Every structure is written in C-alpha cells, then in structure tokens.
Amino acid sequence: MNEKVTIGLVQLKCGNDIEANVEYTLEKIKEAAAKGAQIICLQELFNAQYCGQSVDVNLYDTAEPIGSPTLVAMSELAKSLEVVLIVPFYEKAGRGVYFNSAAVYDADGTYLGTTRKNHIPHAPQYEEKYYFTPGNTGYPVYETRYGKIGVGICWDEWFPEVARILALQGAEILFYPSAIGSDYDNPQLSLRPAWEKAISAHGISNGVFIAASNRVGREKDMTFFGGSFVSNPLGDIMQSLDDQEGILIQKVDLKEIDFARNLLQFLRDRRTDTYDLLLQQEAFQINKRY
C-alpha cells in the first residue's frame, strides 16, 4: 500500500461577496489538485468573512444546509479531481439551529459526513456562542481513499483531548481549519507562535501528522495571520505559509507514524484508571488553596 499522501491547504482572504468567495475558492482547489494535492482542506467558514466579530441577526441568513448548491459543487469537484475535500461552512441544521461545521467528501465525491465544532469560544471579536450551537457529532474519523483523517475546527484545535480521541480512533492526519488573528484586548500580541506550538504538540503526544489552515487579510477590525502549516509526528514544522494568500502542498509518509510511536510510547503507557478528574468540570477546585 502506498503510504505517501500529499496534503493541500488553501489559505485565502474573504471578501464581502459570498458567491465570489466560493468561485475563487473553487479555482484555488483546482490549482492545489494540479500541484498534486490529494487531501485538500479549506479554512474555517471558508466562503464568508468571519461572523464572530459582532452580533448581527442578519448573519444567520448566510448559513446553508448540507446539500446546498455550494456543497454540491464541492462534491462534484472532489469527484472530478479525485481529491478528498474538507469544506468548513456555516451549517443550517434546522429552523434556528446553526453549527460551525466541516463536510468531508471522498475522492469519488461521496459525502463521508460532517464534523461540528464542539468547543465554542466567547471573547471580544470571537462572539461565536451567538451564532453556533455546540457540536453534537462527537469526533468522527473518516476513512478516505488516501488515509484516515480527523477534523477539529479552530477552538477545538487547542484542546489536547480532541487530538487524543481522534488518534485513538485511528486518525493519521488531523486537520484543523481555523479563523484566528488579532486579539482585541492585546493588539500588540501575535498568537501565531503559541497557536503553532500548541497544535504541533498534539502531533508529538499522539504520533500523527497535523495540518492547520488559517485565513489571511483584514476583515473589519481583525487581521488574520495565516501561518497555515503541516507538522510531522515529532512536531517538526515541515512547511508553513506566511501572512499572504497561498496554497501549501506537502507530501507526507504515513510510515513515520510507526517510527514516532515506537520511539515515544505515549499510547501504550496511558493510565486511564487515573484520569477521572478529566471528566469533572470543576476538578480544579479540589485544591482549596485559592
């Protein structure tokens, strides 16, 4: 079995015209496939400017269901290009019920399922709790033509539990579509180094490849820093993009997972019998010092 897989990450700016954003992205997917990409991941909420900067009831109207024209076009493109597509979008699941989601299409266009974002942030310029219901799909792993993959969406990527669950279910590459940029309370601070370290560290502790895609450009009062990257199972950054639009193409060898896990036997040495506190929301209060 050929265990070499080529990852493609599409890092773009988003304008105000959703239809134009979709058409532009479709062209960039074709470009990534022409460069050899087999699994292509778009950025979080790929077709619109990031909604979380403010509270606006009208933005509910930008959500779309599975089976919308946008997603049908993605399925057809995946089939024609023979690529796996990860398509993060604003999902309308029912009347007044919305999720931050990512649909996954196999290389024959088959719809494999949807991951819904589980961890929903609430902070200045990240007002996501207004727009998204917490995910109810759990942490599915998708067996695609080119390998087993898992998806965590933006805030999910910071939580080590997500990566561990996906790895335990057999995911070999973890994809993290993101929309992260400037911080309202700390405008002088760039979170990019912490973002890159935190996510690539999941690759070390689980012996998997990491592929994180982010958007770029100025949208209202936020600047998105890009920095999309792929890291190997020892946490080395294999390739990254800067703060401009771009397409990252990176070939990975899944056999490196065996080497990393044989070297660092974290999965073997887990002590699940000692982890009860992880399931207690107020576990930190066990220390009464404060």
Rank of each mutant, 00 (worst) to 15 (best):
G227F: 02
E91M: 05
D236S: 08
V208M: 01
C51V: 15
A201K: 10
G67I: 07
V5L: 00
Q285W: 06
T114E: 08
I180M: 09
V22N: 10
I40C: 09
T115H: 14
M74Y: 06
T272L: 15
I173L: 10
E3I: 04
E19W: 05
I66L: 11
V22M: 11
A163M: 02
I153V: 04
T115M: 12
Q11K: 00
Y90W: 07
G96T: 06
E19P: 06
A34M: 10
Q265F: 12
T272D: 13
A171R: 03
E128P: 12
Y126I: 15
G203W: 02
D108Y: 13
T133E: 15
G138N: 04
A48M: 14
G8F: 03
Q11F: 00
A102Q: 05
I153S: 01
K79E: 04
I165H: 08
L168T: 13
E23A: 10
E157V: 11
T133S: 15
D243S: 07
N287F: 03
A32R: 03
I204N: 00
V57H: 15
L168W: 06
S80V: 03
S231I: 00
L9C: 04
C14A: 08
P177H: 03
L189R: 15
T6M: 00
K35I: 10
N136V: 15
V55W: 11
